[in-house]
Design a protein around this nucleic acid. Structure first.
Length: 281
DNA sequence: TGATATGTTATCTT
DNA sequence: CAAGATAACATATC
């Protein structure tokens, strides 16, 4: 379940290996995973790979379109050049197995023989081609990411005041600010000692400040940590190991929190939510 | 077999 | 119109 830190990490790695590379051809194995005409990409040279929210954006030399990738729940990107691999996104055995696999949806061939695989087990993710003008319009409507400079405490507080929904749902609302997924929403609330069911509007100024800081903290830690799982020669033993090591509460129901209390699992808005009833009030 | 899980958005309700 | 609630997508796993 790639979130902003994983997307940021794979984006950096891909920018390193793909910038300047020319696409020889694109094979779409699953119609739903690609919108636009993939043949337009033939011969185009990638100039930059970057991230906005949880989207990965590809810029090209002398071409006004952008290619956008969203990994959603189970998307992953695997770049293969000989035995060298750059992997990112949802961790599955495809990180180390031969490709294409049966979850491979799109394959990019580059002129130097290297390849990029877009795998996506559940097909929620997508790749699309957008004209630069369309992208500019779409981008102007997007809220700031939680790692952007515009995501200030003032901006955050204002957004919270508008909603009477549980704070956790507001954190996950991508139309308010981009980039917080379930893992980091749960962990940020734990760090800030706030019960996920609290009404967003009901947080004190002190709590708003603490939560704002906690969000940045967990995302930053995630980015730092996500860097460890890619761009190296991977083997089966290395797969998945570090992915869950430092979750504070996420997916740890029944286990002890940092202070020794039992972490509980509940549902908020139909989604799994983890918190410590002792530490979070 | 059927419930569950999952991020995001489209689409209803209120 | 806005905020909130809910369905929808696909599929593996329990």
């Amino acid at each position: 379940m790639p979130e902003l830190p994983e997307v940021e990490t794979i984006t950096r790695q891909l920018d390193n290996v793909l910038s300047g590379k020319r696409i020889e051809r694109v094979k779409v194995l699953r119609e739903k995973s690609f919108s636009g005409d993939e043949n337009e990409l033939t011969g185009k040279k990638i100039s930059k790979v970057w991230r906005k929210s949880k989207m990965i954006v590809f810029d090209f030399s002398n071409w006004d379109k952008k290619m956008m990738v969203h990994l959603k729940l189970t998307g992953q990107l695997v770049y293969l050049s000989g035995i060298h691999r750059v992997v990112g996104g949802h961790p599955t055995p495809d990180w180390v197995n031969d490709l294409p696999s049966n979850s491979t949806r799109v394959v990019f061939d580059f002129d130097d023989g290297s390849k990029l695989f877009f795998n996506d087990l559940r097909v929620f993710g997508w790749i699309k081609l957008l004209a630069d003008s369309e992208w500019q319009i779409a981008k102007s409507k997007l809220p700031p990411d939680v790692v952007d400079r515009e995501f200030t405490l003032e901006y955050f507080s204002k957004a919270l005041l508008k909603s009477g929904r549980p704070i956790k749902l507001v954190l996950l609302d991508q139309s308010k600010f981009g980039g917080i997924g379930n893992i980091y929403a749960n962990d940020a609330l734990y760090l800030a000692s706030i019960d996920p069911r609290r009404k967003a509007r009901g947080l004190s100024e002190k709590e708003q400040k603490s939560l704002h800081k906690s969000i940045k903290q967990v995302i930053f830690l995630g980015i730092k940590y996500g860097g460890a799982s890619v761009d190296k020669y991977v083997n089966a033993a290395g797969l998945g190991g570090k992915y869950q090591e430092h979750f504070l509460v996420y997916q740890r129901a029944g286990e002890k929190c940092k202070k020794g209390h039992i972490i509980k699992r509940i549902k908020i808005g139909g989604r799994g939510t983890f918190y410590c009833p002792e530490c979070q009030k």
